[in-house]
Simulated assay, not measured.
Amino acid sequence: MEHRWILEVLADLETYAACNDLPRLAAEIAGASATAQREIGLPLQEAGRAPPQGALPPRE
């Protein structure tokens, strides 16, 4: 599907937010990801919730 890339971008953003003490932002992004999955037509469990490879580490 041509829109799957957006799920990877959202996963990267969610991981960054979670790793950098931005829990409300991470939750909002998770909601946006679920919306994107529904609109793309994917089952919610297919996209997975594991951090993507190359996720940004926490800031120091």
Results as ranks from 00 to 15, higher is better:
Met1Leu: 10
Glu2Cys: 06
His3Glu: 12
His3Ser: 12
His3Phe: 11
Arg4Lys: 13
Arg4Cys: 09
Ile6Ser: 04
Ile6Ala: 07
Ile6Lys: 04
Glu8Asp: 13
Glu8Ala: 11
Val9Lys: 10
Val9His: 07
Leu10Asp: 04
Leu10Lys: 04
Leu10Gln: 09
Leu10Phe: 00
Ala11Gln: 14
Asp12Ala: 15
Asp12Asn: 15
Leu13Gln: 14
Glu14Val: 05
Glu14Pro: 05
Glu14Ser: 12
Glu14Trp: 00
Thr15Leu: 02
Thr15Phe: 02
Thr15Pro: 05
Tyr16Ser: 09
Tyr16Phe: 15
Tyr16Glu: 10
Tyr16Lys: 05
Ala17Lys: 02
Ala17Asp: 05
Ala18Val: 04
Cys19Lys: 13
Asp21Thr: 09
Asp21Ile: 04
Asp21Cys: 05
Leu22Cys: 03
Leu22Trp: 01
Pro23Tyr: 00
Pro23Ile: 06
Arg24His: 13
Leu25His: 03
Leu25Lys: 04
Leu25Pro: 00
Leu25Met: 09
Ala27Gln: 15
Glu28Asn: 12
Glu28Ser: 14
Ile29Val: 15
Ala30Ile: 03
Ala30Met: 04
Gly31Tyr: 02
Gly31Ser: 12
Gly31Cys: 08
Gly31Asp: 14
Ala32Cys: 08
Ala32Tyr: 02
Ala32Leu: 14
Ala32His: 07
Ser33Lys: 15
Ser33Tyr: 00
Ser33Val: 03
Ala34Ile: 07
Ala34Tyr: 00
Ala34Thr: 10
Thr35Val: 10
Thr35Phe: 01
Ala36Val: 11
Gln37Tyr: 00
Gln37Arg: 15
Gln37Val: 08
Gln37Glu: 14
Gln37Ile: 06
Gln37Met: 15
Gln37Thr: 13
Arg38Pro: 06
Arg38Asn: 11
Arg38Glu: 12
Glu39Pro: 04
Glu39Trp: 06
Glu39Cys: 10
Ile40Val: 08
Ile40Leu: 08
Ile40Asn: 05
Ile40Pro: 14
Ile40Cys: 07
Ile40Glu: 05
Leu42Lys: 03
Leu44Val: 11
Gln45Leu: 13
Gln45Phe: 09
Glu46Leu: 15
Glu46Ile: 06
Glu46Asn: 10
Glu46Cys: 07
Ala47Asp: 10
Ala47Trp: 06
Gly48Thr: 11
Ala50Asn: 11
Ala50Ile: 08
Pro51Glu: 12
Pro52Phe: 01
Pro52Val: 10
Gln53Leu: 13
Gly54Tyr: 01
Ala55Lys: 08
Ala55Ile: 03
Ala55Phe: 06
Ala55Met: 08
Leu56Gly: 00
Leu56Cys: 05
Pro57Phe: 01
Pro58Asn: 02
Pro58Trp: 00
Pro58Asp: 01
Pro58Ile: 00
Arg59Trp: 04
Arg59Asp: 08
Arg59Ser: 05
Arg59Glu: 13
Glu60Asp: 12
Glu60Trp: 07
Glu60Ser: 12
Glu60Gly: 13
